[in-house]
Write a protein that binds this DNA or RNA. Structure first.
Lengths: 117, 117, 117, 117
DNA sequence: GTGGTCTAGACCACC
DNA sequence: GTGGTCTAGACCACA
């Protein structure tokens, strides 16, 4: 697994988990990969995965059944969307297009960049 | 001076200087605030300002006249814009589309948001 | 460790690192000495070593694996040679010929000196 | 007058004076430009020229006739050559060609660089 | 453990 | 006065 160096790995792992939930690869009630399994699969220190899972539990996106493992919460998707989408659309999107405008980058160019991504 | 805590102060100082140049508060050939003056004015350690000025010199946005001080380069504005553009395309754009993907927002929806802006 | 006094220590440290890479004492992918280790080994303040490592990272000769340390880049050797070549041609060569001119030494005499070398 | 920023201006002024003497633009016994005249002609602070003249007097390349001005010494040329030439030929020249060799730059390429200088 | 940021204070050459 | 280098020591997030 390749991680960008400018973003903490544990946050990148959170993004991976969220994506798996949003794309329904992992559904509500499903048991997710154990810390050790996940750590092995992405070649990262288990402590780092532990930290990601901690954060996800705090946000109630996953929860712990003692002795059984970690599971996707009932309303995981709603929590994720609520947490991210509002901020994205109301804050990041306008800022993004504004910067593009400042730098004289047209919408067509942005679409090109999107495709080559 | 208030600095946000999530971004290193020395980078925020670079932003301040770039802003002053882009808004023509400081023009090509102008002497900029000395390390000590700037440090005092924003209540920061001179070493921190030095670090910012060092980076700005490396990027040839300012230059040193020995013993006299630091001055705004001839092409400062072009360099700044080019630099911002590179960062935007290589860093911000991918991050933006990645988040959009994570949130299941299609390119068409983004274009809609762009138009209603 | 003995440093010459006429050249900043942090630049001399950069030279040491480059030398270790060019002589393959440190190879691509190898972890290099940590800031603190290097600082202790050459009896210098960690900040000074940090400054050297910072420059080496900017030039992409070494890179950071977060929390693990700094490692030699894939293309480190090529980058170093290219960098040295640019400096030689743009800085040393003009300075050399300028001094020769000052001392009234002709190009033919220099060629003679080259041959007898 | 354009000065390179990497070499102290007062040393660059010394080089100018030496060149004028070596090229016999200024001969033994000639009165040289006063500090103020020279400073004005190269657009530099008189203190800086003063420093250069001080150094040249220490090296006995020029000397002071009280109230009359500064004059080129009898054996100025010999002093300059002795001071510079030996070191150049015995130290700098070998080092220069050695670096060129390390960087795979041929004598022909160096000659090209000389011509385009 | 790792790198990275920041402060405080000293010293230097240069103009 | 100017920028630049260096030390000492603190604190932080990250793995």
């Amino acid at each position: 697994m390749n991680f960008q160096s400018d973003k903490p790995i544990y946050l990148q792992i959170i993004d991976i988990v969220m994506e798996k939930i949003l794309t329904k690869e992992w559904n509500s009630g499903d048991k997710i990969l154990s810390v050790r399994e996940f750590a092995a699969s992405v070649e990262v220190n288990p402590n780092t995965v532990m930290r990601s899972y901690d954060k996800l539990q705090q946000d109630e996106i996953i929860f712990n059944k003692r002795g059984l493992g970690l599971f996707v919460s009932e309303n995981a998707i709603q929590i994720i969307l609520k947490e991210k989408k509002v901020n994205f659309i109301q804050v990041e999107v306008p800022k993004f297009f504004q910067t593009a405008k400042l730098l004289n980058i047209s919408i067509d160019e942005l679409i090109e960049l999107y495709k080559s991504n």
